[in-house]
Nucleic acid binder design. Sequence first.
DNA 1: GTCTATAGCCGGATAGAC
DNA 2: GTCTATCCGGCTATAGAC
Lengths: 203, 203
Amino acid sequence: MNNSGYSKTAVKILEASLPLFAARGYNGVAMRDIAQTVGITAAALYNHFSGKETLYFQALEYAFADKVDNLAAELTTADHPEGRLRRLVAFWIDILGGDVILRALLQREMSDADEQRLRLLLDRIFRPVYEGSETIISALARDRVDGHFLFFAILGLVLSHYQLAPIRKRLPGARPEHEAVDWIAAQIAQLLYRGLDPNGSHG
Amino acid sequence: MNNSGYSKTAVKILEASLPLFAARGYNGVAMRDIAQTVGITAAALYNHFSGKETLYFQALEYAFADKVDNLAAELTTADHPEGRLRRLVAFWIDILGGDVILRALLQREMSDADEQRLRLLLDRIFRPVYEGSETIISALARDRVDGHFLFFAILGLVLSHYQLAPIRKRLPGARPEHEAVDWIAAQIAQLLYRGLDPNGSHG
DNA sequence: GTCTATAGCCGGATAGAC
DNA sequence: GTCTATCCGGCTATAGAC
């Protein structure tokens, strides 16, 4: 037992199952696979989780725990708006870019759209971040764009950068630095803040 | 037989399988499911396709056929750069927003990342559009952002708008007009062209 | 708490009659 | 070209010994 309420073996099972579910999806992973990774038999899994669905659900919850702490504080410190925008972009890159497993799970949940699992994502990740970044978002959006739209535009730019990587890397113009987090953050912030208009502030 | 080279039944099979694969993925669809939708038995499927993998692959190819014709011509007509940007955004919305099946298949292919199927997507969709929009992209990007990055930023903004819809619609600030293609196109073009800088051209 | 063994089900694919 | 019947393998889950 530890403070998460799971036994040591249960934690090992959860941590073994996450990369598998992320890589191959719910249907693509057999209980035998998870058991083999842990080093026990499939039957023994049922001593810790009542079934495959339960295990999957608890693995999701386990993966998303404590991902969004202290974001709000970081986003409200006095700073130029562009700096705070950059930190919000960096936050998403940190969450989505640094964790292949979380990203794959997120994408899968988006397309499978189970109501219960969706609620987990909302409560654990999106609502906290949305509320924590409301001030900076509305300050940035002003009358120019819709704030709700802007929040998802930032998230979408980060997410799609990673999501489209298999295709992105295969088209001419791809360069190694496109995978560097600092470069990505700078490009996104630059694009969002300055825009493309040649008559704009930076042109 | 028709000009696609498929018999009438084969076409019915392809068109029946696409929504199923889009909704539940390769592993989530049984040959029996497809057969039942068509109104035949699973065994009869093998008169038209040699196996499940072949059927899936041909269904993908069938879905992507003729999606990108005449884009290049449309993007090079004389016009203000902002107008051409808007047309490029509209093109992606037209492809990705208007076809839930294509979008779901695209997303699934992105995360499953089979080399052969990836090549199909590249050759049928992305490379033609990429090459067709090279001129307008580099004219828009100039020295401000990377052109390769900009191409995927535009695509990513459209794609993620639809992809994140399950979460987007559940957060405060969601409104019905956020689903209207004209509104989406206007917001994306506005954001990309003008940017967020209060000292920018639109101030 | 783990094991072996197995029940019960489902999925892909084939054989052969019609 | 479709059918019925069937094979075979893989899967979740359970029973019961240790």
